[in-house]
């Protein structure tokens, strides 16, 4: 399984990446929403199952990215999770309405991310030791 991490902070991509690798994912990375759209387009039919998306990024923000992904029928299988410091209720509602499946607020622990993957059904049962 592959996951795309979209965040303009390299440190944050590394943190999220490490947790996802431990959970059994291979990682793709992008530094903003436009770069992430380009990465997806370059994958052809071999799409990542998950994208973890920051909200505030240069060039194209995370909400716009999610809206763009949801416009493409062939990308419908991708599970989208916002991973952001934006924590106001109306922000969460907007992201969910735009098509995000989950929303993880920074700061978070590794366990919290793994639990979100579990909620999304993206946790291989063989990698279930997070209790």
């Amino acid at each position: 399984m592959r996951a795309l991490i979209v965040d303009d902070s390299r440190a944050m991509r590394r943190i999220v990446g490490r947790i996802l690798v431990d959970a059994g994912f291979e990682i793709l990375e992008a530094g903003d929403g436009q770069e992430a759209l380009d990465v997806l387009a370059a994958q052809g039919g071999d799409l990542p199952v998950l994208a973890c998306v920051d909200w505030n990024m240069p060039v194209m923000d995370g909400l716009t990215f999610i809206t763009q992904v949801r416009k493409q029928v062939e990308w419908r299988s991708i599970t989208l999770m916002m991973v952001t410091t934006e924590s106001e209720q109306d922000r969460i509602v907007r992201a969910l309405a735009a098509g995000a499946h989950e929303y993880l607020i920074k700061p978070f622990t590794g366990d919290a991310l793994v639990e979100k993957l579990d909620l999304l059904g993206l946790l291989p049962t063989t990698v279930g030791d997070h209790s």
């Binding site: 924590s87 969460i92 969910l96 989950e102 607020i105």
Partner: peptide
Amino acid sequence: QLEVNRGLPATTLVRHFE
């Protein structure tokens, strides 16, 4: 914030919390 990140679906958070 850390506690509501633990196992709570985002839809449930916005519905049952303020």
